[in-house]
Design a protein around this nucleic acid. Structure first.
Length: 146
DNA sequence: GCCAACGTTGGC
DNA sequence: GCCAACGTTGGC
């Protein structure tokens, strides 16, 4: 069973469409400057799945991506403190799941998206993953095969 | 654009 | 090691 995550990005800086355009080579998830978020990336494994969330503008889960490279030092970071993983797009959400949708669902009230609003890379529990998939019109069973 | 929440920094 | 000041994130 893969691990489940949620990764935030401001669409102005890096959007879902930009990740889709990268295709199979994917993109390094750099720029994270928070220790907890970095530690979450260190815990990721190849094949783990992550919701792609648009913060600020949109405020909705727009797609699912997968981890294609383990945490590695950021090329641009001279201090050696910060790391990134590489991700590629898997599928867009048939129906985007907004933050207000998540907040309105009692099953998701413990989700880090609600409780740790500012954490940009966060774990998602299997139950939460399934529930968001259901809301978004995705069959989670079809994702794990990839 | 404002501001609350929260993380980090630095003086003591 | 405490905590005030400051910076950043991100919802509204």
């Amino acid at each position: 069973m893969p691990g489940y995550w949620l990764m935030k990005s401001e669409p102005d800086a890096f959007s879902w469409d930009m990740l889709v355009a990268k295709g199979a080579q994917g993109e390094s998830w750099d720029g994270v400057r928070n220790y907890q978020a970095r530690n979450n990336m260190r815990a990721m494994k190849i094949g783990d799945l992550a919701f792609f969330y648009h913060s600020n503008e949109g405020k909705e889960i727009v797609g699912v991506c997968t981890i294609i490279a383990l945490a590695h030092p950021e090329a641009k970071d001279d201090s050696g403190t910060w790391e990134c993983v590489d991700v590629k797009a898997v599928v867009p959400m048939p129906r985007r799941v907004s933050l207000s949708d998540v907040k309105a669902n009692p099953k998701l009230e413990k989700m880090a998206l609600v409780t740790s609003m500012r954490l940009s890379v966060q774990p998602v529990k299997p139950d939460e993953w399934k529930e968001v998939c259901r809301m978004g019109g995705l069959d989670p069973k079809k994702l794990t095969a990839k």
